[in-house]
Design a protein around this nucleic acid. Structure first.
Lengths: 128, 128, 128, 128
DNA sequence: GTGGTCTAGACCACG
DNA sequence: GTGGTCTAGACCACC
């Protein structure tokens, strides 16, 4: 459960936390059914407020990624329905944004694909 | 100069504006040296605050994409150096985020590449 | 006595249990005077905490649906008075909530009635 | 903009707020594109904390019902996509719960339909 | 001046 | 002991 937050980064802490947990799931450091640290524990470990962690857990639960229940802690949801229209639209928006960002920087299509592959491999191999 | 802002989207307007201008450059609707509308003009056309447009121009200039000179308006920078370390780090961060988002949604690597290609083609052919 | 709990659902387990027992009564799988499993038995079968089952039984008894006697276990109350003001107020509150939820989703009045009929039929025919 | 909260009710204030806003929309007291009070204003009017109102707005925005943007306040979303699978599943769950609640109370199907119609009419005519 | 985020700390519901 | 809710108050990003 190694999670690193960058407090200098301007993206909200709860979003960084959500991204980190998603990454842990993708690299199988967290598997379906696994329990996550308690809100209070993780908050203390990371040096952030309890509510910040709670919000991350809550939103991940709303996305169907975590299963959070009162008195029982949080765990990785054991099954997921296919993503909904909202999620797909959001993903396409991010892709569009990324592509334009890359092209205007002079990063070509092939180079972009290569960077993505590199990132995927880094995730699958457990590197950070 | 067709720019469409999505007021439902919760990304800041100035960022949407920056993305739109980058897209126009990528699809060659704006070429190197071309002039952009004045801040006041574009703000009025889009119905947004003057400061919002000014910020978009300013940040694009900081990225070396636009050239703004006092009293001469803004234009597409005629030449660009290779992107710097900050831009590359930023691009990699966005890639990492996108990849984790896709994987956790159940979108596989190949599907992701396909979605990117589709987006690139849509840009190159001038579709929105 | 087939009771299925959905651990993904975020409604409290004791409430799910109460709803399940009510459903069993409505579809006549449990008839007036029938005995229910002991708290310990049901808790073990469902893999939930003993207090959770106890609370469900206790609240159902408070609603006049179950009859619990010390040392004799729980059974379906053999007769019920007409529902009280508290129950009716509660039902109306739930209806109000449901109607607003449906309308704002774009589910019209007729569609809502149809969904209710479908649910009732599913219960009467013993399907889950 | 008359919103009444019941602080004795055990349902969370932010959920009561969400329900109230949905009701105002359904009875056309709030129409598409209309602005809502600022978070601070409404919090003060209702005598609740700013964060409580902010959460209600945020979750309504996540449901596509409100459009909330930094620096511009909140407004009723002018258009909604068809509800997703999650919303429909949730609605069906609430219906199932309501039906079992009614039947076990001795409220028959016709009576239930009548209560729903009464509620809808009360909403459409602007009564509370 | 708008909403967004974060903190600190309290109390409650659930298991 | 778990997560959920609420409050009070601060600071920041955006328009």
């Amino acid at each position: 459960m190694l999670i690193a937050l960058d407090l200098h980064d301007q993206t909200p802490i709860y979003e960084q936390l959500m991204a980190s947990i998603k990454e842990l799931i993708n690299r199988a450091a967290l598997r379906k059914g696994d329990s996550l640290p308690t809100v209070r524990q993780l908050a203390q470990d990371l040096g952030v407020n309890l509510n910040t962690v709670a919000r991350a857990y809550r939103e991940l639960a709303a996305q169907g990624i975590l299963s959070v229940r009162q008195g029982r802690g949080a765990s990785v949801a054991s099954a997921r329905g296919r993503y909904g229209a909202a999620e797909e639209a959001n993903l396409r928006r991010e892709i569009k944004r990324l592509v334009n960002e890359a092209l205007v920087l002079g990063v070509g299509l092939e180079e972009l694909h290569a960077m993505i592959d590199a990132e995927v491999h880094s995730i699958e191999e457990g590197g950070s």
